[in-house]
């Protein structure tokens, strides 16, 4: 279970990215985080594993208070949180297998990771995950030799290799075409359901969010302006989140895109 209490973030330049954000995610729930560009979606999920340092407020994962941990404790909590990125964020010049195995870095010693001698169960799990995402034959290829959809699947395998208790997913489909986007979203949902894994998916495509998540949080200028099931996401809510627009044509546009 993840709970975020009164979280705020002000950047050094004085921009207030997050303003008193509070919500709780029970285990097994997949939440879609929507909002216009610059609303603070990316900052919010980066605050949860402290890639961005929050200014005030607290974050709790299970019994652990993430805010206020020392560096080594923070590493221990980061390996419990899997993260999937918009631009895949694979280490391009490493092989697919090394990218997946890098999910275990928080668990193994430096020298083991340096010589790529990961424990047998880690290697087996990595192979199993690659089979699950359909990339068994690509294990020895370099990451930059794969297509966008394939890379994102490697990203998913890397995050799950961590055996996470929470997934943070930052715009998983922004660099993909509509068909691949749906395939990747479906895969993510299946993986979360199989493991009862809670997830926050930061997504700009409202149609995809509606279709794939059971709860939606709307962020506007750093504040939560909507929190509820997709069925309640009507025109007036969308106007509150994104501003005035002819929302009736939205679905048609997105499907055509």
């Amino acid at each position: 279970m993840l709970s975020v209490n009164h979280l705020s973030k002000t950047y050094a330049a004085g921009d207030k990215a997050l303003d008193d954000v509070t919500f709780t995610i029970p285990s097994g729930q997949v939440v879609g985080l929507i909002g216009p560009s610059g609303a603070g979606k990316s900052t919010l999920i980066r605050c949860i594993n402290r890639l961005v340092e929050p200014t005030s407020g607290s974050i709790q994962l299970g019994d652990t208070t993430i805010t206020g941990l020392s560096t080594s404790e923070l590493r221990a909590v980061r390996r419990r949180i899997g993260m999937i990125f918009q631009e895949y964020a694979l280490v391009e010049r490493l092989t697919v297998m090394e990218n997946v195995l890098s999910g275990r870095l928080g668990y193994v010693s430096f020298w083991r990771s340096f010589f790529r001698k990961f424990p047998a169960e880690d290697v087996q799990k990595a192979f199993a995950l690659l089979a699950r995402v359909g990339l068994t034959d690509h294990a020895n290829k370099r990451a930059d030799a794969l297509s966008g959809g394939q890379r994102q699947r490697v990203g998913i395998a890397r995050a799950l290799e961590q055996d996470p208790q929470l997934l943070l997913i930052d715009e998983p489909t922004a660099s993909l075409d509509p068909k691949t986007s749906r395939q990747v979203m479906r895969l993510l949902l299946e993986m979360c359901n199989e493991r009862g894994l809670p997830a926050i998916i930061n997504i700009h495509d409202v149609v995809l969010a509606r279709q794939f998540t059971e709860r939606i949080i709307g962020l506007q200028a750093g504040k939560i302006v909507f929190d509820g099931p997709p069925s309640e996401l009507d025109e007036s809510v969308l106007t509150r989140i994104y501003g005035e627009e002819d929302w009736k044509t939205l679905e048609h546009d997105s499907e055509a895109a």
Binding site: T95, M97, E98, L101, R116, F118, A120, V123, Q124, K125, A126, F127, A128, A131, R132, A139, N140
Partner: peptide, 16 residues
């Protein structure tokens, strides 16, 4: 589709 995890190889060597 989902094989038993023990059926997968235990080691992996980085290609040169």
């Amino acid at each position: 589709m989902v094989d038993k995890i023990s059926s997968f190889p235990k080691t992996w060597k980085r290609p040169p």
